[in-house]
Each structure stands twice: as structure tokens, then as C-alpha cells.
Design a protein around this nucleic acid. Sequence first.
RNA 1: UGGGGCGUCGCCAAGCGGUAAGGCAACGGACUCUGACUCCGUCAUUCGGGUGUUCAAAUCACUUCGCCCCAGCCA
Length: 555
Amino acid sequence: MAEKENIQLPEASNFIEQIINEELAAGKFQSVGNKIHVRFPPEPNGYLHIGHVKALLINFGVKEKYHGEINLRMDDTNPAKESYEYVDAIVKSLEWLGLKYDRLVFASDYYDKLYEIAEKYIMDGNAYVCDLSAEEITATRGTLTEPGTPSPYRERSVEENLKLFREMKAGVYPDGAKVLRAKIDMSSPNINMRDPVIYRIAHVPHYRQGDKWCIYPMYDFAHPISDAIEGITHSLCSLEFENHRPLYDWVIEKAGFPAPVPRQIEFARLNITNTLMSKRYLKKLVDEGVVRGWDDPRMPTLAGLKNRGVPPEALKKFVTDVGVAKAYAVVNAAQLDSCVRDYLNENAGRAMAVVDPLKLTITNYQGEEELSFEINPLKPESGTRNIKFTGTVYIGRDDFALVPPPKYKRLTVGGTVRLKGAYIVRCDEAVQDENGNVTELKCTYFPESRSGSDLPCAVKAKGVIQWVDAKYGVDAEFRQYEQLLKDEQYPDQDYAERLNYDSEHIFEGKAEPCLAEAEEDKPFQLLRTGYYKKCTQGGRLILSEIVSLKDSFNK
RNA sequence: UGGGGCGUCGCCAAGCGGUAAGGCAACGGACUCUGACUCCGUCAUUCGGGUGUUCAAAUCACUUCGCCCCAGCCA
């Protein structure tokens, strides 16, 4: 007898790793060299969204921790919904997140093997061809409290079943005429065990297999076997598959795979407040043209988040912080925002911009000069940028108040404020139009207050505001939003209600025109998105966020 | 109503019989040429409720209440 190897077990950081540690300690995987093997199995029927990041990180986390392997498997067993567009999008999303899998595999590559196992089931008396219609199967399945009734075709002979199944494969029957069912227990309290369908007829070409097949395996059959074929040790999935676990185990057992056999472990999926996390609805938004595509910045897809300017590192931090458990949970979107801000604060360069510009003219200033700003104050090594200053600038309308609220730190008539990186100015007059709207501010500046100068300066300013030079600033463009702005194509609440969810989060905010400081004669983009809003505190923009958004659009 | 799960601070979440980590949010205060950041401080005598076992329970047992999932030829 071989001695049990002494394996170094890493500290478990969640209940899944705890289970793996126990199994490892019990020697369950000795025959496979204690190699842990997991997989991430999306169906290529849509883009990955933020919810998938949880499954992704749990699986990749296990792979890393145990120095195991991970397959990216396209769970493509329903040809009606799948395509290469989605395969590509999924692969790209993983790249964006920086997750490297060991191999890309397709469930559709196992169709032959799957078929072979199905025939074995028939020969072993574990499956039969059923002629009942879909409605009849539903009707005879029983209810939650009543057992189902056996199909009249349940006791067909092995020979007949085999003949019929081969005819199904050969295309003798139309869609829906027959199915292959697992022969388990029609009175099981677990409805999934009441002779589930494992193969259906569908005369639909497959995006990879073409017309080769007209019968396709169901998830409950294909998934466990795919896992077993690949030597997966742990099949991690979300809670809604808990009821399928007995079937998962049954399918593998009857297929006769040798131990160690894959084990399914479920965890709670990720939910975020006001965020739609269903591929089905997201696809609907795309199909109906409510959004401009799966990568629309308002979408919670990874492609959309990327376009919104969310750094992948922030996403990973967020999902890791949220943890892994089995309790149903809805995480506050504020927690994601916090991760984004946190990362951006640390890494993003800074620039000034104003939304809703208000002209500020310094009446005693002449000429122009260049001022220097740090690109990222937190990272001195990132260098500086130079901004021209001509004495006529635009400031944000929010940074001036005719009637200042209590504790207001910005500009008021007669008050002073510092133009960030430049001078302190005093507002002498607020020019108003016939309606009383402020159209321009006439100010006086104090030369000795120049930023960084050692001159003694008597004037003090309680606030610091951003500005954009009137001559050198540029109109920021909204590359992503310009069309939306033009068409006023905003999904409305009615639409959201029809879809039965709250759209506030993905649709909040519209793009607004703004002015931005010029940078290498390339205007930068400013988006009025969720993050923009979240990054507004007390009416002030946090510049780092804006610049990062810009970067993400300069593809 | 059958079966399967889950209930620890406003939102997540550690805890695994020895006397409630952490993050987000919130609230005070310091600092600040980003009202940001940073920094300091506050924030569960209590773990859905009840009853037991024990010297000792969020952790064990029993019971009760609440929520989620399952009746696709979707995954």
C-alpha cells in the first residue's frame, strides 16, 4: 500500500476550499497526483457580465491556490442560441480580466462520446426513448406534492430503444417527436429525478458542428459527463443547481467513470443593487435596440464596464471583497463604486474639466503663461503636465453661488477662491442676463498668490476650484454617447417595468457637454455615467475618474 | 402542501463549543491648492425566535418563524 503523501494544504479562505482541503487530506485525489482541476463553463449565448466574475474568480482562485488546472469550456449544447460572436466575446473578457486558463474546450467536441454513453445507458437499461409530447411529459411529471406517472414507453426493450435512438440520430423523426429519457424514479420528491430528458431532436445547425447532428444532449446529461471527461475534480456552480446534484451524480455513476469522480459544489451567485444580472434580459435590451450593443457603457457586461472605464483590477477587488457563501445576497453597488474609486485614486492621472461652464474673466490680467500640474499627485514619478492660462477661463457653474449656502467654500460675489494651480481670484461682479441668469463673472486676481510662489500673500481663499482656459480648453466629445444624445435614446422607467426590473443603475445619468483642458491637442472624453455621479461629492468632480474614463475610450 | 437550501450590524462577510474579525455605508474630528485622498475616533452584551445539553453555545440538539430554488424537449 502506498503511504499517504503529506500534502501542504493552503489555508482555506471559503467553504469550498475547506471542502477541498478535507478531501485532499482524506487522500481522495491521490490517484491523480492530488491535482485539482476546475472549469468555467459559460454557454456562448451572450456576453459575460459582472455576475460571472464571481464564478470566474472562485474557479481561478482554486486553480491558483492548489496549483491546479482550469478549463474554459463553452457549454454549447443548445445550437439555437449559440454563436462564435459570443465565444469570442467570452475569450476577450477573460483576457481583459487577465485570467489565463489552461485550455479552451467545447462541450460540442464531446458529442460523439456523449452519444456513445447515451447508447450505453440504453443498453444498461438506464434510458429509454419516449414518444410523449412535451406537454404530455409535463402533465405526467406530477407536481411538487404528487408523484409523476410513468411514461407508457418506459418499459420498451433495449433493442427497440436502441433502434429508435439511432433513428432519432439519423434524422428519421421531426423535432419534438421523441426524446431520450433517463430512467430513474417518477415518484422521486426531487422533480429533476423524474425521468429527465437527456436528448432532444432539433433540426438546427450547430455553429461548430454544422448539420452533423439533429439530436442534442441536455445540460443535465452533457455537463456532468463533460466534467468527467476532462477530469474535473470540482464542478463549482451556483445555488440553483443544488437540486440537480443528485442527477449530476447519477449521470456520472451510470456512465461508469472511475474515481475520483467530479463533485459539484454550489455557491450563491452575485447580485448587485439596481443591476440587471440576467443574460436573457440583457439580450433583450440589445435585440430591441434599447442599448447600442452588449458593450454599451450602461450595460453590466464586462465589455460594457470596460467601456464605462471600470478597471479590471477594481472588479476583481470587489468580487474578492464580497466573498463566497451560500446565503442569498444583494451587494450594494456602492461597494463596487468604492473599489473603482480606490483603484482610480491610486492609479489614474488627473486633469481638469468643467460641466456646465460659466465664463470667468480676470479684468486685471494680461498675456498668458504655462502652469504645471502633477499628473498623479499620489505618484510623483508620473510627472507633470502643462496647462496654458490666459486669464479668461471657464469654471463649473456649481462652483459659483449668488446666494451661497452655509459653509460654502467656493466663489461668491465679493468672495475669493483659488483657481487650482493658478491664482486666487476675487469676484467683483456677476453679470446677469435679463432673466437673472449669471452669464459671466468679472474677477480680480492677485499676482502674488501664484501657485507655488514664495511671495507673501495677504489674500486667502477657503476653496479651490477647477477651471478650463477659455482659449486653450477644448470641447470634450462624447464618443460613446453622442448618438444617444442626438436621439434622446434613453431607456425609460416604463421599459424597465415591462422587463420587471429596476433600471436605475444601468441607465442613470445622461452625458452632458463639458469643457476640458487640452492635452496634446487631443480632446478627452468625459462621461456622465454612474461613476461620474458617484464621484461627485458636494458638487465637486473628482478628476481622477474622468481621466480614467478618457483612457478607456482611447482604444 | 413534497424535496433541496439559507437566516451573524443598513449592505456583504469571518466565526466550526471558550465568551462577536474585516470591508462597504453612516456619523464625529484632524489634515488638505481635488469639500477627494489620508489620518484618528464611533458604529452587534449580541448572532431570525423559543427550549434544551454544557462550567461555557452564533457554534451541539429539539422546535418554531421567515426567505430562496425545483414541475424547460434552456443552461
